[in-house]
Amino acid sequence: MSSGKKEIKFLTQQKQIKRPKKYCRFKKTGIKYIDYKETEFLLKFINEQGKMLPRRITGNSLKYQRKVSQAVKRARHLALLPYVTDLLK
């Protein structure tokens, strides 16, 4: 008899939520340079208030998340992107 403790039987079947595997879009598409002048591409990485999205949401690798944040900050300096706004999209 296997030890009872490991096999805890739940009443309802434990639903395994299959979350899609996150990937870094820059590695996949092979983008090497993130242009700070391309605002419609940078819009993907900021939320409605104009704040930058964290890595766990965008799924970027560290190297490219830093490039994205530098590009966003440069775009903000040049007034291509707002520092703070509401309902940006």
Partner: peptide, 26 residues
């Protein structure tokens, strides 16, 4: 190299904004 490509018109809908179907960023 990116600017070179842009001048030849390669960058555009194709390379930069290739949107895979699964949208990761909310």
């Amino acid at each position: 190299e990116y600017n070179e490509k842009r001048r030849q018109g390669l960058v555009g809908k194709g390379k930069k904004t290739t949107e895979t179907s699964q949208e990761v960023a909310s």
